[in-house]
């Protein structure tokens, strides 16, 4: 009997993915789940929001991810005086050619690290978010395609809120997953303190994948088998968010679709050739946490609601 195991087709592709995952795991130790989530977001064709304190390794993660995936990467440090053009690029008039020439902004990269996105003004934020949603940039009436794959890892500091513009709930929906990194365990922290800086490893890192192969993997994830019981499970979870008393509005059908897609991607990351309820369960908090808006008096946040729903929904 077949076991949940290696993908049916493109076995070398799956091996490359495994290698990429292993490489990132070497650099960011003890954060396997976050890394898997990041890969899942990438392979589901979505974007990732990391909400955590500075210094826990957000940037390193983004960098390692982009290096492992191959292709070019850009980092945009958001500030309050930033304009959309600083991200998207500008059309400049070239005197020689007597015409406007588009100079692409930092967003034209396969992996974009948008650091401290909440420091930018809403106008700038929305320019980024629109680009994320559309996969293209329109400047001065001309549309410029963004490279494929296009993966944004945005970070947000949840504590230092002075002088920031927190992302509105409606905009949070643009991120497929939201997660936290958290502190390393004591043992891992000791290794961090005693061993040479892991960021040096980044310099010698060989990319295991390239943009084309990532696109192939995204296609593979989209075709991954999801059986009836797993679909039942997904529907049950989504229905539970809609009837949960602490939630203003449950997950939308788009979110349900995203849940299936992310679960598939996660299954692919885990080297399975079909989707398990376990995949759904793993990605569900990251997917639903920022989409669920709890009523104020409930005293719960979206993550708590998501956890509660997972605990109380039987697996069919």
């Amino acid at each position: 009997m077949n076991k949940p195991s290696t993908a049916r087709s493109g076995a070398p592709l799956a091996e490359d993915l495994a290698r990429a995952r292993a490489t990132v795991n070497e650099i960011i130790v003890d954060k396997g789940e976050v890394i898997d989530l990041a890969f899942s977001a990438l392979l589901a064709g979505g974007h990732l929001l990391i909400e955590d304190l500075p210094g826990v390794g957000k940037t390193t993660l983004a960098q390692a991810l982009s290096l492992a995936v191959g292709g070019d990467w850009q980092r945009i440090q958001f500030t309050s005086d930033m304009l959309p053009a600083d991200i998207l690029g500008v059309s400049m008039f070239r005197r020689e050619g007597e015409q406007f020439e588009f100079r692409p902004g930092p967003i034209f990269a396969n992996v974009v690290l948008a650091d401290e996105i909440n420091r930018a003004t809403p106008r700038t934020q929305s320019a980024l978010l629109e680009a994320m949603a559309e996969g293209q940039v329109t400047v001065d009436g001309r549309t410029h395609e963004l490279p494929r794959p296009f993966f944004v890892i945005a970070t947000q500091n949840p504590l230092d809120l002075t002088g920031t513009y927190p992302l509105p709930d409606s905009q949070l929906d643009r991120f497929l997953l939201r997660t936290r990194i958290g502190y390393p365990s004591a043992a891992e922290e000791r290794r961090l303190l005693t061993e040479p800086d892991r960021r040096n490893l980044l310099k010698d890192m060989e990319p295991s994948l390239d943009p084309n192969r990532v696109m192939e993997l995204i296609g593979l994830a989209g075709e991954l088998h999801v059986s009836e019981p797993v679909l039942d499970y997904i529907q049950a979870l989504v229905a539970a968010t809609r009837s949960h008393p602490a939630v203003k509005a449950g997950l939308s059908p788009r979110a349900a679709l995203a849940l299936i897609q992310t679960a598939r991607a996660h299954a692919l990351v885990m080297q399975q050739d079909f989707c398990l309820p376990d995949n759904v369960r793993t990605v569900f908090p990251a997917l639903a946490g920022h989409r669920l808006q709890p009523v104020a008096e409930s005293g719960m946040d979206g993550d708590a609601v998501a956890a509660e729903i997972l605990e109380s929904t039987p697996v069919p």
């Binding site: 009997m1 077949n2 076991k3 949940p4 088998h225 059986s227 019981p229 797993v230 050739d273 079909f274 989707c275 398990l276 309820p277």
Partner: peptide, 17 residues
């Protein structure tokens, strides 16, 4: 448990399995 998952969630295995 793995066999169960393969049959139920992976639609793997024939009637004999």
């Amino acid at each position: 448990a793995r066999d169960y998952c393969a049959i139920r969630y992976g639609d793997r295995g024939n009637e004999a399995d």
